[in-house]
Design a protein around this nucleic acid. Structure first.
Lengths: 208, 208
DNA sequence: TCATTAATTATAGCATTGCTAGATTATTTG
DNA sequence: CAAATAATCTAGCAATGCTATAATTAATGA
């Protein structure tokens, strides 16, 4: 049977409704999480806020974890974009500094979102074929920084990312005082700019 | 009323029983967590395993979170001891390297314990008057590394800790491939040993 | 237009969880 | 041994994630 234009338009409208409701759920979940923490993001609470019954949420995401995973994925998208922006405009200082600032600014301004991305135990695939494009894009922004400055870009990128993540996470969980944050980042920059100046003999991870 | 020797001995025995049961609870919780993950550590499950009813656990720890906090505290104690050992024996290589290895070895060999210490949202006080001695001790081991090698030991220590934590955490959550772990640590060492050789002018974080 | 089919949505309930009031048993004391 | 104290258990509450089934709404074709 050939679909009539009417059928098409109905299907399209339904798709739009579906997508907008999906977006709304993610948005509400994010807002509650930032204001009250993830434990307050219950399926009942969400269904109340969007004025639909619980099974509707399950039709969309399959599980509560599915909702959180969708939020986290959105977070990776935004983090990637923020880093790309920082890497490209680059007013003063190095690109490394610029990206580091963008990363930590992102983590500090959306702690619950960052928590969903890295601290909640969501099964988000990393480093394999099923890795979402948002994640690849985000990490590629870091990789780009060291692409032509090092003989082992992956290793340096991973280390840089790990350092940023450590700072962000220990700060988020109140393990590190925010007061010394600037100095910490400055120290990190000294370390990662070293490669430019270092005189080394023998094999090393850094390119000349 | 003056206590008789008998009363004393009874009280002592009761205290011993209490402490050993407390230790048993912590031990069982740890074992389950490492084998099956923290969600499997339910109060009912624990009460089954120690053959007591649930309220007994609440008499000991007040809440489920109290149990996890006790496990985490034990973890900080062990991590501190492991780093102290690494710092003192120091066979080959730098103390920094030795401590880094000990830290990452600890995190890798007890992932659930490390998760309790850093990833679960337990309200463990940090950096204030109420900070448990185990935490102070652990961090002091890192601080010791940079005490006389830097003009700002706190900043460097915090950055070093953050880097190690980032590596440990991203590895634990499968964000970083274990295959390049050695290279990552080697790169970290290059960065943090730089201070020894660097020729710098003007103020810097590193001492000569 | 209107009955029939297909889709969407809601109701109501299950099993599990952390936690606790009140009953019960064991232990200590006089 | 009886009373009092301490230790422990039973049974249940409220909240959670999730789902089978019923109800309702929308789309279809004569």
């Amino acid at each position: 049977m050939v679909e009539t234009p009417v059928t098409n338009r109905i299907a399209e409208r339904k798709l739009r409704d579906k997508q907008s409701r999906r977006a709304q759920i993610i948005s509400v979940a994010r807002r509650i999480a930032e204001l009250e923490g993830w434990p307050s993001v219950t399926v009942r609470r969400l269904s109340d806020e969007i004025s639909y019954s619980q099974p509707v949420l399950y039709a969309h995401f399959g599980s509560r974890e599915g909702i959180l995973t969708a939020v986290a994925t959105e977070g990776f998208q935004e983090l990637g974009l923020a880093m790309e922006k920082a890497r490209k405009r680059l007013k003063r200082g190095s690109t490394v500094q610029s990206v580091a600032d963008a990363y930590l600014e992102f983590a500090a301004s959306s702690p619950a979102l960052y928590e969903a991305m890295f601290s909640l135990n969501l099964s988000v695939p990393f480093g394999d074929a099923a890795t979402p494009s948002e994640l690849r894009f985000a990490f590629s922004q870091i990789l780009e920084l060291f692409q032509e400055r090092s003989s082992k870009p992956e290793v340096l990128s991973e280390l840089f990312w790990a350092s940023l993540h450590g700072i962000a996470e220990l700060t988020r969980t109140k393990r590190l005082p925010p007061s010394r944050q600037k100095e910490r980042v400055r120290a990190l920059m000294e370390l990662f700019n070293f490669q430019k100046r270092k005189q080394h003999r023998g094999q090393t991870l850094f390119a000349d």
